[in-house]
């Protein structure tokens, strides 16, 4: 049995936010795949739970008329893998979702939970960092939007304040339209494993194959997921030649703060960063070329 002292099931978001104010000790639970395991291992001694599982306000994936894609925090990893909007507009996020856990976990684990858990190894994080995801936090006194890069504060620590619930993850059209992407998870097994390292790359090219925009985000390369701004700045306006790819990968390693853990040494992680960034860039470029060729009516691939 889990050491649960009390359990509340909110029926509406307003009720959940009110309960959080009334009983500040409440811990929010959604899918439970992280929280219940932490309870099981005694990392959390005992807990008062507030379930947000029934809140329809936090469910579903929507494409707004202005082009924003809004992911409710209760969206599961299986939803991300299977939803037509994600497959069509942000395939890199579907790829990342499929890399997480195994089927039974993906069916119930929520995107909001993966983010609020604050792990540097969160499989959703590199893609969401590259997409400049905005997090919509709701409390009884109002709402605030926080860029995901500012939300992760340290290992297991996120910028969620007392009384707040993560309601949605917002992706703006300028951050996903026209991009091709790749997420590579490196782990010891192909399923049911935590990432030793994760790399997400998003690129947008001009017609002349010049990089108009590049985003590189890493997981498990520091205490929080991180972006590699110097590498991105260097790459803008350049073509992806072998020489430039090598320079980008060097700068990516410089941006990282990898450390030695039982999964891998710092040196091995840095090797992975260089190698996987190179592979992700090559793959993202291949996808972009394929897309251009499809858009041009299936003409010759250059």
């Amino acid at each position: 049995m889990y050491n649960i002292q009390s359990y509340y099931e909110a029926e509406t978001l307003a009720e959940a936010l009110e309960l959080l104010v009334q009983k500040p000790s409440l811990k929010v639970i959604a899918g439970g795949t992280d929280l219940l395991v932490q309870l099981h291992h005694g990392r959390i001694p005992q807990v008062d739970l507030l379930s947000i599982r029934k809140l329809r306000e936090l469910a579903g994936i929507q494409l707004l008329t202005a082009g924003e894609i809004v992911l409710g925090s209760l969206v599961t990893f299986s939803d991300l893998v299977n939803h037509q909007l994600i497959k069509q507009h942000i395939p890199v996020l579907a790829e990342a979702a499929l890399a997480m856990g195994g089927p039974q976990i993906r069916h119930i684990a929520t995107l909001g939970g993966n983010i609020c858990n604050g792990a540097t190894s969160a499989d959703s994080a590199p893609a969401l960092f590259a997409l400049n995801a905005q997090l919509k936090l709701t409390s009884r006194s109002g709402e605030r939007l926080v860029p995901i890069r500012e939300f992760y504060l340290g290992p297991g620590k996120v910028d969620i304040r007392a009384g707040e619930i993560l309601a949605a993850i917002v992706l703006n059209p300028e951050d996903y339209r026209g991009f091709s992407g790749e997420y590579i998870k490196f782990a010891m097994r192909q399923a049911m494993d935590i990432a030793t390292l994760g790399v997400a790359v998003l690129c947008r090219f001009t017609a002349g194959q010049v990089l108009e925009d590049l985003r590189i985000a890493l997981g498990v390369a520091g205490p929080t997921p991180l972006r590699c701004s110097a590498a991105e700045d260097f790459a803008r306006g350049k073509v992806l030649s072998a020489e430039n790819i090598a320079a980008i990968c060097e700068l990516t390693v410089e941006a990282s703060r990898a450390r030695t853990s039982w999964r891998a040494s710092k040196e091995y992680r840095e090797h992975l960063i260089k190698e996987l960034t190179q592979r992700a860039l090559t793959s993202a470029r291949a996808k972009a070329v394929k897309q251009v060729s499809l858009d041009a009516g299936g003409g010759e691939i250059v």
């Binding site: 439970g32 219940l36 099981h40 039974q104 069916h107």
Partner: peptide, 23 residues
């Protein structure tokens, strides 16, 4: 007991889930 082995899998509304980490 922590959602890794799948031995406790049951169908909840026809979806396979690990019942050990399902309240």
């Amino acid at each position: 007991g922590v959602g890794e082995c799948g031995a406790c899998t049951v169908l909840v509304d026809n979806t396979p889930l690990d019942s050990c980490i399902y309240l």
